[in-house]
Design a protein around this nucleic acid. Structure first.
Length: 246
DNA sequence: CACCAGGCCGTGC
DNA sequence: GCACGGCATGGT
């Protein structure tokens, strides 16, 4: 298992993957996947999921030339990619993420899968679909440990059709539309647009990125980072977390 | 025992 | 408009 996959699969952009003894596993698209390294990604579904056709090299070079912080971040995490997750999974995952930590988000993600998803192999469950969750009540969600986010989940599931509109909308319109769901604010909306719709103009500002902006990019904003601010965000997010938690 | 976590809502000004 | 407190819960 290489470190490269760790930052992508367990770094907070997805909660679908489980680190096992000798591989990373996930249930996606109705199938159990097990991978140890990039060369295991051969299936068409996974190739698309891992965004393997996008040319990260030139974007990395462009960002590295901007300043020393981006240069350091990119050199530390050169293999970072933005996964193409299912919109519904991304929406629920990032509603769960607020005022929460990665480990516990994953715990709830797995609990929802086990209780409301479909068992694909023994012990491996798909994340529930919107229709599998449509009759789940606030009290039911409370039993899953989602706490004050339970009512947000119910509202999101009731308004799931919004996700179908997103691809037709401009970034700002799409963000506003997502924010009409109770419990989705600017940051969660950006995460859904980025990880669920691959909108690379999104720029999720969480506590870590706010710290980065205040400390290293004072007076600057998203426009400083060029055409793909989401990539700059992802490198800097990983960089600052690594720096301050280890 | 505290305190914290990839924020947002509701209230008050 | 903007600042503030509160929030369920598991981990440390």
């Amino acid at each position: 298992m290489q470190d490269n996959l760790e930052i992508i699969l367990c770094g907070g952009q997805t909660f679908s993957w489980t680190k096992e003894e000798d591989c990373y596993s996930a249930v996606l698209n109705g199938k159990v996947w097990r991978i140890k390294e990039f060369s295991d990604i051969k299936d068409e579904y996974l190739k698309n999921y891992f965004d393997l056709d996008f040319d990260y090299v030139s974007v990395r070079e462009e960002l590295k030339a901007k300043d020393e912080y981006l240069k350091e971040a990119i050199e530390q995490f050169p293999s970072l990619r933005i996964l193409k997750q299912e919109p519904f999974i991304a929406m629920i995952s990032f509603i769960l993420s607020q005022n929460n930590n990665i480990k516990r988000i994953k715990l709830i993600y797995d609990k929802l899968s086990k209780n409301y998803g479909t068992e694909i192999e023994e012990g491996y469950y798909s994340f529930p679909t919107a229709s599998q969750l449509k009759d789940v009540s606030v009290e039911d969600f409370n039993a899953m440990g989602t706490g004050f986010r339970s009512r947000y989940l119910v509202d999101a599931i009731n308004k799931v059709e919004i996700l179908d509109e997103i691809p037709t909308l401009l970034y700002e319109e799409a963000k506003e539309r997502l924010m009409s769901i109770v419990g989705i604010g600017p940051k969660v909306a950006d995460c859904i647009l980025l990880f669920g719709f691959h909108r690379l103009e999104a720029f999720p500002l969480d506590v870590w990125m706010k710290k980065v902006m205040n400390t290293y990019y004072k007076g600057k904003d998203v426009s400083y980072f060029g055409s793909y601010p989401a990539l700059a965000q992802q490198y800097l997010f990983s960089w600052i977390r690594e720096k301050e938690t280890n």
